[in-house]
């Protein structure tokens, strides 16, 4: 068993709890144990917080990392926004003495200190990493193959970009999540401008909802063109934008897409035999039934 401190963030536990439940169970099935990171807060949101004061962003994220350092565990998480905050702040504070000293000055007020003793991983990254899990182990864990389904993959921006601040090597046409999807028996389909943003980030969703939805709608057009039965992603904030966003798109622009949106952990949960109820798919704004009908 590989053990990690599980950083929850906000949207997964507070809006899509199925993602949290799925992550804990699906990862256990492939030899990854997620341990609660007690007292963690918002990462904090890189757009919303980084935009107003980067110093606060560093300090707040550092506090979350310190909790894992106290556990002596590396961090894993299931949200790209959290990944940007926790991974990037961790790396920057490790390498930049000035930034670290400034963050530690604040942390000292609450008797904490950033030491730089842990690493941060996205859970999807661990799934793909053969040293931890690997595609084969994912494939072996499948009890209900998603045969006959076409699934579009949305990587999300902060998972891969800026690339030079990531472990990954390709932010223009990566295929590794497709491999993870194919391992479930589904067919990962390619679509136009796959790497385009969901539209939610940088506070734009809150600042100008219609603008952010217009970006989302462009993605929906491209995904529909590829004939996908569902969209999968590895970020609850992207999920929120695609899922609830479709309702808002219908409301604002009068266009109805009806495309089920599932976090990769939810998809994996289905393939590993979890029921829609165990994944709280009923909390999704877009009905997942058309997709579920194909596999159940």
């Amino acid at each position: 068993m590989h053990e990690y401190a599980f950083f929850l963030g906000c949207i997964a536990p507070n809006r899509y709890p199925g993602c949290e439940a799925a992550a804990i169970r699906t990862s256990r099935n492939v030899g990854i144990e997620l341990l609660p990171l007690k007292g963690a807060s918002c990462c904090p949101a890189p757009g919303a917080f980084g935009a107003v004061d980067l110093r606060v962003w560093y300090a707040m994220a550092a506090r979350n990392i310190c909790l894992a350092e106290e556990m002596g565990k590396d961090i894993t998480l299931i949200c790209n926004g959290c990944y940007k905050s926790i991974y990037e702040v961790n790396e920057r504070l490790k390498e930049d003495d000035e930034l670290r000293d400034e963050a530690n000055e604040v942390l000292a007020e609450i008797d904490m200190e950033f030491k730089g003793s842990v690493d941060v991983y996205h859970l999807a990254e661990l799934y793909y990493d053969p040293k931890v899990c690997g595609v084969e182990k994912i494939r072996e864990s499948v009890v209900r193959p998603l045969d006959g389904t076409k699934i579009a993959v949305h990587y999300g921006c902060h998972l891969l970009k800026p690339l030079k601040e990531r472990r990954f090597t390709n932010s223009e046409n990566p295929m590794w999540i497709e491999e993870l999807v194919d391992a479930l028996g589904a067919e990962a389909v390619q679509y136009r401008n796959k790497m385009q943003c969901c539209g939610a980030g940088g506070g734009v969703r809150g600042f100008d909802l219609a603008h952010s939805l217009d970006i989302t709608n462009e993605k929906m057009i491209n995904i529909a063109e590829a004939g996908a039965d569902a969209l999968t992603e590895v970020c609850p904030f992207c999920q929120l934008q695609f899922d609830r966003g479709q309702v808002e798109i219908k409301d604002k622009f009068g266009i109805e897409w009806g495309l089920p949106v599932l976090h990769y952990n939810e998809l994996l949960g289905l393939a590993q035999g979890m029921s829609p109820q165990e994944l709280a798919l009923d909390l999704h704004a877009i009905d997942c039934k058309p997709f579920l009908d194909k596999i159940l």
Binding site: P46, G47, G50, C157, H158, K161, P162, L163, K164, S171, E172, M195, Q196, C197, G199, A200, G201, G202, G203, V204, F207, D208, H211, S212, I215
Partner: peptide
């Protein structure tokens, strides 16, 4: 200024 979604495509 507030329309950047911070997608970082430009940075890459």
């Amino acid at each position: 200024l507030w329309l950047c979604t911070t997608c970082y495509s430009c940075a890459d």
